[in-house]
Amino acid sequence: MTPSEPLTADPADPTLPTLGAESGDPAPASGVARILRFTRAERALHWATAVLVLTCAATGMILYVGELSALVGRREVLKTIHVYAGLALPVPLLLAYAGRWRAAVRRDVRSLARWSPADTTWLRSFGRRAADQVGKFNAGQKANAAFVAGLIPVMLATGSIMRWFEPFPLPWRTGATFVHDWTAIATWVVVTGHILVALSKPASLRAMVTGRMSRRWAQRHHPRWAEEASPG
């Protein structure tokens, strides 16, 4: 950054790029109509959380699986990385709610949290039925988001009891380990599924990288959202 550039974007100046306000950006000249799916703040939230979850999952697996523990060693370092990555887990979400960019985050959280009857139909038929009812997020994406939202406080609380066990009633340490272990196994299953689905749907993955999605893909997979979404 050169000294002439402002440290923060001035909201009054429309020529400056601002976090989470990309809908005003000019559409790309490629000819394919693309619509804004995720703001920069939302993508930052997703990828920061992803890096932290994967760090916790990788270090946690090494600490947990004896064969890997024996192979890697360095228990003290791994524990430290695991604990700090875990403590940082809620930080991206808190930051996402901390600025002017929160409007888009809040809107998406709201549509992730609400389930229509069509969502249930969609989920039960593995996406074969009620596909014309899907809005910005399908039921699989909603389930994944809810799981991660529950995962963070559960792992944070049980991990903290494991790490700072002194003030807690005595059997809680075993109980916290028990919950932490099983939730970790569930996380491995869900995160692996999430990554496999993302790789099999490159357009959705690209939207989480670039923020934009082609209108055609949106019309096919998120028809009710495509109706209302404005061009990127």
Binding site: A113, R114, W115, K142, F147, A149, G150, L151
Partner: peptide, 16 residues
Amino acid sequence: GAPVGRRIVLSMLGLG
């Protein structure tokens, strides 16, 4: 829609 997301999160917290 129904607040299923909140129910999932609260269930996880309760089970935990």
